[in-house]
């Protein structure tokens, strides 16, 4: 979408979708950031305030869905515009789920804060920071239509998975050491799982950015039998 539409109103509608998606993404980013601070600083008020702001995410999802549907009905877009709008519809679903996961993090943070600290959650905070950076980078990639940047985000998902495995092992030892640690350790483990899922959703966003720009479906790469892939082998007519 390098060039502008001849119809400026149509151009404006597409711009509005793009802006709203970015607003929603920034809001999720902000929530995740606050949740991590609430965890690190044992701030239950901040956790509760963050939970409430999920309303904004939900409202934005409904708004963007409606906007996309209206543009689809009105303009019957094709090619890059079609890919952009269908991806926007999918992006907001992932963003909304991420908002829900941040709410789950905050719930566990509030529970944890009612107990004495188990240990400093250094690795968990690191993991959340990686997820946060991934989200930030993927939103930039969406705005710029930058495939290389989106692919770098997708690659980082492995780092998050590794951090999760490491945190999980550590928590197991805590639990085995002392059964009184179990309540807190399972809460910490849940948070780590939520962060890991947030990173998974961010990876989905990265795949969507690649599809939006290239028109190439990279999901489940190499894992689907080729006839099930959404991708067409070739755009050439049968005889030429």
């Amino acid at each position: 979408m390098n060039r502008a539409h001849t119809d400026r109103e149509y151009e404006g509608e597409l711009r509005r979708v793009r802006e709203q998606v970015l607003t929603m993404g920034a809001k999720v980013e902000e929530m995740l950031d606050a949740a991590v601070r609430a965890l690190a600083e044992r701030d239950s008020d901040l956790a509760r305030a963050t939970m409430a702001s999920d309303q904004v995410i939900n409202r934005l999802e409904v708004e963007i869905d409606g906007l996309c549907l209206r543009v689809l009905a009105k303009r019957q877009p094709v090619a890059s515009d079609l890919r952009f709008l269908t991806m926007a519809l999918k992006l907001v679903t992932d963003l909304e789920r991420m908002g829900d996961l941040v709410v789950n993090i905050c719930e566990r943070v509030v529970e944890l804060n009612e107990e004495p600290p188990l240990k400093p959650y250094v690795e968990l905070v690191t993991m959340a920071e990686v997820a946060h950076q991934m989200l930030h980078a993927v939103l930039d990639a969406f705005l710029a239509g930058d495939v290389a940047a989106a692919e770098r985000v997708i690659e980082r998902d492995a780092d998050v998975d590794a951090l999760y495995a490491s945190i999980f092992r550590e928590l197991l030892t805590y639990m085995m050491e002392n059964t009184r640690n179990i309540y807190r350790a399972t809460r910490v483990q849940s948070i780590a799982k939520y962060v890991e899922r947030i990173a998974d959703h961010t990876t989905n966003l990265g795949e969507m950015v690649v599809f939006m720009v290239r028109g190439k479906d990279i999901r489940h790469s190499g894992r689907l039998p080729s006839r099930e892939r959404g991708e067409r082998k070739s755009g050439r007519p049968p005889v030429s």
Binding site: H5, T6, Y10, A79, S80, G215, K216, R232, G235
Partner: peptide, 26 residues
Amino acid sequence: EHGTADVIFTKPTSSRTEDYITGRFG
């Protein structure tokens, strides 16, 4: 450009085709 309608209307190869079918003229 000449291709299957599926491809032309979802992922045309030429930027000329893309500009024309999406309504980005001159």
